[in-house]
């Protein structure tokens, strides 16, 4: 049997635009950026762009699984603000008892992860067990988390204690071997996500669930639990993103994470994941996140068009990236 496999040529699809589309778009943006500003490819700028992509990137990796499994989560932006708020309040409250140091920050991180998991579980539970439409559940929780953080902050801004923040700050600004921590964490999350999507039963099952729930059910997949898990993982990753976000500015307010959900969803779709589910690829999502960040960066660096039009240019590129994939799809 083994020799039969060995003798047969491996089924290899032609390399086509559908696969390459987002990569080409990214390369084109990089070339454009480099030609417009000599600092574009500088170490500092590359680090800035990658590090600021990390929050949405980490969340978008989780979103890839949710969307692949046929779901959607509109609440991640508010959830991030809420988790950040809870984390800051907890850290401030724990300082008197724990003092400032690694245990304090570690406790804060655990609280952030736990809050994220709980928030994701709540979404997932309502969607998979109570069977309410994902769009409605997460639209509702989007408002709930946004209000909660406004309430926690009493309408203002929650700020982390200054000394705690100074201690925590390196988690965003420092790094390993010259690579900033957020970039490292984003890379690790993306690699694990890609492995999970392509090489584990979990990823395969997500795609099956998104493609046809009935087939998944008849194939002895625990459909409800699987769907719940996608939301819990997304919540966990929102927690991870928040852990990287809080040390950056040391604050959270009602305007934290506004529209992150849409950026994350856009990145997922630009990357080639199918919005209605059934097919997802994590590496595409990473490309999508980078494309979105680079557009902003280039527009800021170049000042070639009126800043009033930034949103329009972003919109055009997002739509183009998706159209490019569609056309090449029908061509193959």
């Amino acid at each position: 049997m083994t020799d039969i496999t060995a003798s047969e040529p491996k089924p290899r699809r032609r390399v086509n635009l559908h696969v390459l589309g987002p990569v080409l778009a990214l390369v084109a943006l990089i070339i454009l950026g480099a030609s417009l500003n000599s600092n574009f490819l500088s170490y500092g700028n590359v680090t800035n762009v990658l590090a600021r992509s990390a929050f949405i990137g980490i969340i978008a990796v989780g979103m890839t699984f949710v969307i692949t499994a046929g779901g959607i989560d509109l609440s991640v932006g508010s959830m991030a603000a809420f988790v950040a708020g809870v984390m800051i309040l907890s850290l401030n409250a724990l300082i008197p008892s724990m003092g400032i140091g690694v245990p304090l920050i570690a406790t804060g991180m655990v609280i952030a992860l736990a809050t994220g998991i709980a928030a994701g579980f709540l979404n997932g539970f309502l969607i998979s067990k109570i069977r309410i439409e994902a769009f409605i559940v997460t639209l509702g929780s989007m408002g709930i988390y946004r209000s909660l953080v406004t309430w926690l902050a009493d309408g203002g801004t929650l700020s982390l204690n200054f000394d705690a923040r100074s201690f925590y700050r390196p988690v965003y600004y420092d790094g390993l071997l010259g690579i900033a921590w957020p970039i490292i964490v984003f890379a690790v999350v993306a690699i694990l996500g890609e492995l999970a999507m392509r090489h584990t039963a979990f990823g395969r099952h997500c795609a099956a669930l998104g493609a046809n729930e009935q087939v998944a059910k008849y194939s002895a997949i625990k459909v409800e639990r699987l769907r719940l898990m996608t939301y819990v993982i997304l919540g966990l990753l929102v927690g991870v993103a928040t852990i990287m976000y809080v040390p950056r500015l040391g604050s959270a307010s009602a305007s934290t994470g506004v529209l992150w959900e849409l950026e994350a969803i856009a990145a997922v779709i630009i990357g080639g994941t199918v919005l209605k589910g059934g097919f997802g690829r994590v590496w595409g999502t990473v490309i999508g996140v980078l494309i979105l960040s680079l557009i902003d960066n280039i527009l800021n660096l170049a000042s070639i068009v009126s800043p009033y039009l930034n949103g329009a240019i972003q919109g055009v590129i997002v739509i183009l990236a998706v159209v490019l994939q569609r056309e090449s799809k029908s061509a193959d």
């Binding site: 099952h205 099956a208 493609a211 008849y218 059934g278």
Partner: peptide, 24 residues
Amino acid sequence: TEDRKDKGLLLGKDLTQNLTLLAL
């Protein structure tokens, strides 16, 4: 199942993924 198109197979997926879905 009697309904191979709606409940049995993922028509948009390749043969391997369909074959191994139940016994992954």
